Simulated scan of single mutants.
Amino acid sequence: MADCLFCKIAAGEIPGDIVYQDQDVVAFNDIHPQAPHHILIIPRAHIASMAELKPEHGDILMKVFTVANQLARDLKLDSGYRFVTNIGPDAGQSVNHLHFHLLGGRQFGWPPG
């Protein structure tokens, strides 16, 4: 999508602190980190949010989760981490491109928010 910030980062049109990329998935450090480790993981394909997912997106979701697990291992987040997505403005989604937050390096409270 031409005006999507995350599509532009994935395409290399604007800079991002990329920590992982392949043909399907891009992961980069959040510019407003909420934890010592705060990585956004996105599919290259534009999907607005989890609310737009269809059965045919199953393979890309598996890839996103696999990348998240590998990044958590690489960062040695053995004591735990949080992996979340926000759906819609009331939940805090500010970019309309499916993205997951991998947060770690500190203890998190419950309930979130």
Rank of each mutant, 00 (worst) to 15 (best):
H37T: 15
I18R: 04
P89G: 14
P43S: 11
H46T: 10
I47T: 08
L102S: 04
I42D: 02
Q23C: 10
V84G: 05
P112I: 10
D90E: 09
P43H: 08
Q34M: 12
I18M: 11
Y20T: 06
Q21N: 09
G113E: 13
C7V: 11
G16L: 04
V95W: 06
A91V: 03
G58T: 13
V25F: 00
L53N: 07
A35C: 08
G104W: 03
E52N: 15
D30K: 06
H101S: 01
I9S: 03
G105H: 04
R44G: 06
A48D: 14
A51G: 13
H97M: 10
L40E: 04
T66V: 08
R82W: 03
A91Q: 05
I14L: 10
P33A: 12
G80S: 03
H38G: 03
W110G: 10
P15W: 00
D78L: 09
Q21P: 05
E13P: 00
I31G: 07
L61R: 02
I87T: 15
F100P: 00
G58S: 14
Q23I: 15
C4N: 09
N86K: 11
V26S: 01
P33H: 07
Q107P: 02
P111R: 12
D78C: 05
M1K: 12
I31K: 13
H32V: 14
